[in-house]
Design a protein around this nucleic acid. Sequence first.
DNA 1: AACCCGGGGTG
DNA 2: CACCCAGGGTT
Length: 351
Amino acid sequence: MSYKYEKEFRQNLVEWFENEKRDLPWRKTKDPYKIWVSEVMLQQTRVDTVIPYYENFLEKFPTVQHLADAEEEFLLKQWEGLGYYSRVRNLQAGVREVVETYNSIVPKTRKEISTLKGVGPYTAGAVLSIAYGVPEHAVDGNVMRVLSRVLLLEDDIAQPKSKKVFEKAVMDLIDVKKPSEFNQGLMELGALVCTPTSPKCLLCPVRDYCGAFAEGRTTELPIKTKKTKVKKLSYDVFVVENEEGKLLLEKRPETGLLANMWQFPMIEQAAEYASTVELSKSYQIELGGQSELPSLKHIFSHIVWNLNSFYIKGESTKGDWFTLEQIAELPLPVPMQKILHSYKIERCKID
DNA sequence: AACCCGGGGTG
DNA sequence: CACCCAGGGTT
């Protein structure tokens, strides 16, 4: 963005904020302690949820001294229902540091305020800019979304290292005369207009300076990888061999993971029953001798299977039994191929 | 960098 | 149900 556009972007954003900002309790004060309380409450928590807690909390603890002197049990009671309860313990610890070390004055530099318990990069910048008018960045999820669109920043906002890109962007753009309005303007814009889904670009005060809007890419940004934590599942897998030398297989469901592929019977490990009991029950198998096959781990994109496998003699009229030649024609997922391989090796040993 | 930490609103 | 929310601490 050119210097001229940067200036217009700043002006439009700040003017829009001053005219359209919501009337919120913490916007009636510049008391750094009260701003601090609001910012901690707003961490990962919606505005509407916070409002009643904020008003009650400051009624109970109107100054840093009141909070410093509070009993923990009473303190937690005031936070009850807000969640992330370590926030309020850290807040009290930070406030006590301010009382003891800073003469009850919240520090005015990023370096000092950042040493306080519970004050991370975002909260430091928010308190500094909003309460003290210090031109410091306050990058939260809203700011990353807005700036990724305006500046076409394609860094993955799910990765921690991306945050410094956005912090630098804010420091390059920030209105040094009105850092409070600028920072809050970015957040307010993200909350009201530049929303995650279906942003209201027609109402946007900085639409003319938005790269994503110009290129019709607002729905593509921000880039955020899904942090679907891999699910770990443990199974016992049974290679059941009957007197004819045939093996018992089952077909997986027609939808979902490895749809319609074949597998040796596998039973998720549960504490209640030995899986062999469940196996013999579901296939009405008379089980004979059993030996262990090597355990293995199989990693899918989003799931990890830990498989314990066993070689068992068994007889049943139920289930689908196949010769090795027939199995060679069936679709088997790789982990089952591995187990089949170890079964063949184990049988060679016995022979 | 991954993981944990609560609870509620929303498409 | 998955995602998101004015994130930070711990490991």
